[in-house]
C-alpha cells in the first residue's frame, strides 16, 4: 500500500493548496496568487534571478529522474524476449508479441473483470466512507474524545497486510473463529468466509476499510479545518440544522479536495494491493481473486516470464494514465478545478 502513502505525500501539497482556496473562492475555482514580476529575456538572467528556487527544485527532479524515470528503461523488456543472461540489450526484440498473447489469453477477461470490480468497490465504498468518517470526526466537539478516536482509527494503517490477513484468518477460521461462529449463529447459516468465492470481495473491502479509512481522513480533516467558521454562524442564525450545515457549507467547502483525492484514487485504482489479495487467495476463491498484480507476480516471478509480466504491468499503467486524464477532464468539464 505504499502507493497510498506516495499519493498522500504528493497530495499534501495539492490538498493544502486546494484547501486554502475554498474559504475565499470556493465556486469560481482557485485563482493563483498574483505572481511577482518575472524578468523577461535571456534564460541566464531568468535563472540567475530564481537560482534558489531551482536549487530547491533539484532534489525533487533528481528523485524522479533516478527512481522513476531511469528505471523506465527496463520497460523495454516488454517488447523483447528477455533472458537475464543475455541482458536487456542483447535480448531479441519481439514487438507486441507479449501484448497479443495477453489479450488473447482466456485469463485476460477474468483478470480485468476481477481487477475492475475490486477497484470500483473500493472506490464506491471505501472512498466515501473516508469522507463520512472525516465529517463525523469534524462534528465531535470534545477535543480529547476527537483526538483519542483519531489515534485509534489511524493505528490499523501501521499494521502490515500479513498481520491483517492473519487476524482475518483467526477471526473467520472455520468452526473456531469467533466471528465465524457469531455470524453463522445469528444468521443460522454455514458460511466459510475464507474459501467461499462470494465472500472474497466483501472480506477484501472490509479489510481495506478497517485498515485505511482512518488514515485517509487526515487530508479531509485538514481541509475541513479551513472552512470559514463565519459561514456556520450565519447559517445557524438562518436556522440551519446540523445536516443542512454539513450539506451546504462543509461539503462544498472541501469539494475541490474531494475532487483531487478522487482523481488520485482513480489513478491508483488498479493497484488493488498485491499483498492483501495474495494472502487471502486460495484454490477455492481464486476465480474471483486473481487480479493484475497477483498475475504479474505469479507469471513474472514464479515462472520467470519477465517480459510477459512487464507487458501486463505496462498495460495496467496505461489504463491508470487513461483513468487519471479521463477523470481530470471530467472534473474540469463540471466546472471544477482539476488536478492539472
Amino acid at each position: 500500500m505504499s502507493q497510498l502513502t506516495d499519493a498522500l505525500a504528493s497530495n499534501i501539497g495539492a490538498g493544502d493548496g486546494a484547501g486554502a482556496e475554498p474559504g475565499t473562492a470556493p465556486k469560481r475555482g482557485g485563482k493563483p496568487p498574483k505572481a511577482p514580476k518575472v524578468p523577461r529575456g535571456k534564460f541566464s538572467v531568468h535563472f540567475a534571478h530564481y537560482k534558489w528556487l531551482y536549487l530547491l527544485l533539484l532534489p525533487g527532479v533528481l528523485y524522479f529522474a533516478v527512481f522513476r524515470y531511469a528505471p523506465m528503461y527496463g520497460v523495454s523488456i516488454a517488447f523483447k524476449d528477455y533472458v537475464p543472461f543475455l541482458g536487456v540489450n542483447a535480448s531479441p526484440w519481439v514487438g507486441f508479441q507479449h501484448f497479443q498473447d495477453f489479450f488473447s489469453n482466456p485469463d485476460f477477461a477474468r483478470l480485468l473483470g476481477n481487477t475492475l470490480i475490486l477497484a470500483f468497490l473500493n472506490l464506491g465504498i471505501a472512498f466515501p466512507l473516508t469522507i463520512v468518517l472525516a465529517l463525523l470526526l469534524n462534528e465531535v466537539r470534545l477535543s480529547i474524545l476527537k483526538r483519542t478516536v483519531q489515534t485509534l482509527v489511524y493505528i490499523p494503517h501501521f499494521l502490515s497486510w500479513t498481520i491483517v490477513a492473519s487476524l482475518s484468518f483467526l477471526l473467520f477460521a472455520l468452526d473456531f473463529g469467533p466471528l465465524f461462529l457469531f455470524i453463522n449463529n445469528v444468521l443460522g447459516t454455514d458460511i466459510d468466509f475464507l474459501s467461499d468465492p462470494a465472500w472474497f470481495r466483501p472480506l477484501i473491502i472490509l479489510q481495506e476499510i478497517w485498515k485505511n479509512t482512518g488514515w485517509g481522513t487526515i487530508i479531509f480533516l485538514a481541509a475541513l479545518a479551513t472552512v470559514d467558521q463565519d459561514q456556520y454562524e450565519a447559517a445557524i442564525i438562518d436556522g440551519a440544522g446540523r445536516f443542512r450545515r454539513v450539506w451546504h457549507i462543509t461539503l462544498p467547502g472541501i469539494r475541490s479536495t474531494i475532487i483531487v483525492m478522487l482523481i488520485l484514487a482513480i489513478g491508483q485504482m488498479l493497484n488493488t494491493g498485491f499483498e492483501q489479495i495474495y494472502l487471502m487467495t486460495n484454490a477455492l476463491n481464486r476465480s474471483v481473486a486473481d487480479v493484475f498484480d497477483t498475475y504479474v507476480y505469479f507469471v513474472g516471478i514464479t515462472q520467470g516470464a519477465y517480459s510477459y509480466s512487464t507487458a501486463v504491468g505496462l498495460f495496467k499503467s496505461l489504463v491508470g494514465i487513461v483513468l487519471i486524464f479521463g477523470t481530470n477532464a471530467l472534473a474540469k468539464r463540471f466546472n471544477q478545478s482539476g488536478l492539472f
Binding site: S2, P71, G74, Y82, G87, N89, Y297, Y306
Partner: peptide, 21 residues
Amino acid sequence: MINRKLSLAAAVVTATALTLT
C-alpha cells in the same frame, strides 16, 4: 508494486550489463 520492482531490477541489470561489457 511488483512492476516497479521489476523495472528497478531491470535497471540494475542494465547498469551492471554495461559495466560487464
